[in-house]
Amino acid sequence: MTKVEGIAGALQAKLADGVRSVTTFRGQTTAQIELGLIVRACQVMREELGFELLAALTCVDYWPEEPRFSVVYQLYSVQHNELLGLRVAVDSRLGEVPSVVSVYPNANWHEREVFDMFGVRFSGHPDLRRLIMPHDWEGHPLRKDHPLGYEEVQFSFNFDEIDRRKPYAKG
């Protein structure tokens, strides 16, 4: 058992049913956490197990499967030099994740970005609004059912046709 698997085991011991499973893929360990206990898990990781840095916070969309979203946290420990990932499965209907801003302040903008790109709401977040898209944009771009916004490419055979349609600016 590697050191990080040992740490994941310690987390499992402290959280009882909070940790649903611990998997290792290509040498990296990820623990699946219950949705309601993510703040407690982060607190344990930070204060008791010594993982001071929230390296990354992102989200994956598994549309049309349910639970649709999976919020991924990557935690890094400077003292142990170990990386541990946490995952939380979010249903698209219930869809609110407790915010970990109280434990890791830098989660603020990362959670705003996840809200902006995926529409996952974070309860307890001090300022949940769009970060990257214009503030009146409709839709959440990184969802799998949001279109790419692909524009037809102008080749020589359809050049004139597209040229007529393209909204060129007047001076």
Binding site: F25, A55, V60, V72, L83
Partner: peptide, 28 residues
């Protein structure tokens, strides 16, 4: 499966979280 690779860019930690789904395009 998913992996997280870390490098040190001139600005700090640059990490790439990559998730594959068995196909030729990255899932996330």
């Amino acid at each position: 499966g998913s992996v997280y690779a870390i490098t040190e860019s001139p600005r700090g930690e640059l990490g790439c979280y990559l998730e594959g789904d068995g196909g030729p395009k990255p899932y996330r």
